[in-house]
Computed example of a mutant assay.
Amino acid sequence: MVANNMNRDSTLSSDAFGCKLDKLTVNQELPSHHMSILRKGSDGGDLGRVEMKGKDRGMLVGLSLSNGHSRRTANENYANSHRFDSGSVYIRDQSEDYGAEISGAFDFILFDVPYSTIAQFARDAGLPSVRTLTPVAVTKDPILANLASAVIPSLKNPAAANPFFLEQITAAVATHLVQSYGGQPVASSSGQRKLSHSHEQLAKEMLMANLDGKLTISDVAVACDMSRGHFIRMFRETTGSTPHRWLVEARVKRASDMLRNSNASLAEIAELCGFSDQSHFTRVFLANFGVPPGVWRRRP
């Protein structure tokens, strides 16, 4: 198990979700604009009874990273036992009281999603009536599992997390959740408006000037006097690509120029072009050029 990276209040015996702090061997948190992402784990043994009083704070989505965990939930109306394997997901509304008997080792990534985030991304997806997610006991969700795996390095070192990357991942998570558990998206209307020439130029200039990842899509949307979702739709209609995909391509193009015209190391190029690390740079470059950056650099 990885080490904790959260500062604990010595006066507290349990975290916000009712888990006993002295039983947790993994206790990490990564706040973002859209939601909080946490990782909670225990190497083994029974945590006993976990209880959480209902609070009007949003939906909690849990994704298991390991096999064999089980829990029994019960209230005056029902009692159910559930087994979680790797990739299993649960969703519950935190406005309701929660109690469960926790058994065995576990390792979960939790997405603490405010109602406001659900409503925002539901509107962007064409689902204006969606305000919450449908509760789920245990279900497999490979898409969410893949998205969650991408944030594990940032959970280990939140101070080094790339804000742009984090915004894109949490936006992808929120969009997936509302589309999969909040209703089906409706088809977008034809004849969708495009960005004006001035807004297109401004957006591209801002993105190009901040390839290091310190700028977020929300920053660009505000500069264009639009909501984030509206800006993304119009940018895609105008350029044929999402802002994130356009930026990735711009980063790869700059990286290829630096490989040809500088003596910078691969790690330096990765940092200057906004990739989370050299490994991330290599994966993206390989996907775009068919060869790793080091091999590409050595070609005549």
Score class of each variant (00 low, 15 high):
69 H>D: 05
26 V>N: 01
51 E>K: 12
128 P>M: 10
59 M>S: 11
104 G>S: 08
85 D>A: 15
63 L>M: 12
20 K>T: 06
82 H>N: 10
122 A>P: 07
52 M>V: 13
80 N>M: 15
133 L>N: 01
111 F>H: 03
53 K>V: 07
121 F>P: 05
134 T>N: 06
37 I>Y: 02
139 T>H: 11
38 L>M: 15
99 G>H: 02
43 D>R: 12
52 M>K: 15
117 T>E: 05
103 S>N: 14
131 R>A: 12
22 D>F: 05
93 D>F: 01
84 F>V: 06
62 G>Q: 10
49 R>I: 14
85 D>Y: 11
120 Q>M: 09
100 A>F: 03
57 R>E: 14
44 G>Q: 07
115 Y>R: 03
140 K>H: 13
137 A>Q: 13
80 N>A: 12
134 T>F: 10
133 L>E: 11
70 S>P: 01
27 N>K: 09
24 L>E: 03
98 Y>R: 13
44 G>T: 04
67 N>K: 13
91 I>E: 03
71 R>K: 15
134 T>L: 08
36 S>V: 13
102 I>P: 00
81 S>E: 15
84 F>S: 02
113 V>Y: 05
127 L>I: 14
132 T>I: 11
27 N>W: 15
70 S>L: 01
123 R>G: 12
52 M>G: 09
63 L>Y: 02
62 G>S: 13
20 K>E: 04
140 K>P: 00
134 T>C: 08
92 R>I: 09
73 T>A: 13
35 M>G: 05
65 L>E: 09
121 F>Q: 10
111 F>W: 06
75 N>Y: 06
39 R>V: 02
92 R>M: 05
136 V>M: 00
74 A>G: 04
110 L>P: 11
117 T>I: 01
90 Y>H: 06
130 V>A: 14
92 R>L: 08
87 G>C: 10
54 G>Y: 07
88 S>L: 00
118 I>Y: 06
27 N>P: 02
112 D>S: 11
57 R>D: 12
101 E>W: 13
67 N>R: 07
87 G>P: 12
41 G>L: 06
30 L>T: 05
32 S>M: 04
92 R>G: 04
41 G>Q: 04
66 S>D: 04
